[in-house]
């Protein structure tokens, strides 16, 4: 799955709030939805995970890491998830 390279999906992005964050590389405040810079580092999140499957509704999917296949959502940050596996290298 190809995801847009937005600041909020970068590992260097520290979210101040729902619209902006600080870039750890530049220490500048950047807008969450703006296109990321060449230093972009993909942030682990459900949308990037091999175990994630999109659902019928927007922004809601399924996690197949456990047998009950619970609901999840693509933007759930997965840096602490024990089951996370990159969808692609």
């Amino acid at each position: 799955m190809t995801t847009p390279s937005r600041h909020m999906h970068c590992r260097n992005y520290a979210p101040i709030d729902a619209v902006k964050g600080i870039c750890h590389m530049t220490k500048e405040i950047v807008h969450a939805d703006d296109d990321a810079c060449p230093s972009f580092v993909r942030l682990p999140r459900c949308a990037e995970c091999k175990l994630y499957a999109a659902g019928a509704d927007d922004y809601v999917g399924v996690c197949s890491a456990t047998s009950n296949r619970p609901m999840t959502y693509p933007d759930l940050v997965a840096v602490t998830c024990e089951w996370f596996e990159w969808r692609s290298a």
Binding site: A18, D33, D57, Y59, V60
Partner: peptide
């Protein structure tokens, strides 16, 4: 924009609202 106001005070990303 991409932010939905909930409970009169808090902003949440619209992508998180369905979940």
């Amino acid at each position: 924009g991409s932010v939905v106001s909930i409970a009169g005070k808090f902003g949440i990303r619209k992508e998180e609202v369905p979940a």
